[in-house]
C-alpha cells in the first residue's frame, strides 16, 4: 500500500495511505506534484502542512479515516444554496466526533478543513458554528468571534430600520 507522510506545523508526522490522503483536495494535489517532480516513482511523498498543528491534523485524518468509503461528490453538486452534505446525512459518528470539542478546536478544524479541502468536514463544522450563533445578539457574536463593527455614519441605524421593515412585513 502506497503511503504518504503528512507532517504538522509542530513536527508530528502521520503515516497514512495515499488513498486516504487523496480524499483531501489539497493533499491530492501535493501528492501529484511530488510524483511529477520525483524521479523515483517508489519514493514516499512527504507533505508539510505549516498551518495546522498535530492535534487538529490528527482530527482531520481521523474524520477522513471514518469517511474513507463515502462516495466522493463533485465539488458543486448539492451546493446550489451553499449547503453541503451535512443536511443530508450527519451520522451519529460525526455527532459523537464533534460533541466533546470546544468552539476553539472547531474553529481550527474549520480552517484546516478549508485549507486541506475536505468538504464534508467543512460542512459539518460550519453547521455546528451556525447552531452556536443562532439566536445570539449582535454584541454577543461580535465579542465571541472578535468581529468589529466597521459601519460608518448612520449605516448601522439604516440597517436596523431596514430589518424592522422586513420583520414587520
Amino acid at each position: 500500500m502506497a503511503l504518504v507522510r503528512v507532517i504538522s506545523s509542530d513536527g508530528a508526522a502521520f503515516l497514512v495511505s495515499q488513498r486516504l490522503a487523496k480524499r483531501s483536495g489539497k493533499l491530492k494535489t501535493e501528492i501529484e506534484t511530488f510524483r511529477k517532480s520525483s524521479d523515483n516513482s517508489e519514493a514516499q511523498p512527504e507533505i508539510r502542512i505549516v498551518t495546522i498543528r498535530a492535534e487538529i491534523l490528527r482530527l482531520v485524518l481521523q474524520w477522513l479515516q471514518q469517511h474513507q468509503n463515502d462516495p466522493v461528490l463533485p465539488a458543486n453538486q448539492n451546493e446550489q444554496d451553499g449547503r453541503g452534505d451535512a443536511e443530508m446525512g450527519q451520522s451519529q459518528w460525526d455527532r459523537d466526533f464533534l460533541a466533546p470539542m470546544d468552539l476553539g478546536i472547531v474553529m481550527e478544524l474549520i480552517l484546516a478543513a478549508n485549507h486541506l479541502e475536505v468538504k464534508g468536514l467543512l460542512d459539518i463544522t460550519c453547521k455546528l458554528v451556525e447552531s452556536k450563533i443562532t439566536g445570539r445578539t449582535v454584541d454577543e457574536i461580535r465579542t465571541a468571534f472578535k468581529l468589529k463593527s466597521d459601519f460608518k455614519g448612520n449605516e448601522e441605524e439604516q440597517t436596523r430600520l431596514e430589518n424592522r421593515w422586513c420583520v414587520e412585513n
Binding site: D81, G82, R83, A86, E87, C126, K127, E130, S131, I133, T134, G135, R136, T137, V138, I141, R142, L147, K148, S149, D150, F151, E155, E156, T159, R160, E162, N163, C166, V167
Partner: peptide
C-alpha cells in the same frame, strides 16, 4: 446557509 431569515437579518448588523 443553515440560517433562517430572522438570524440573517440579525447577522447584517454584526459588521460590513
Amino acid at each position: 446557509a443553515y440560517s433562517g431569515q430572522k438570524d440573517l437579518l440579525n447577522y447584517r448588523l454584526v459588521c460590513k
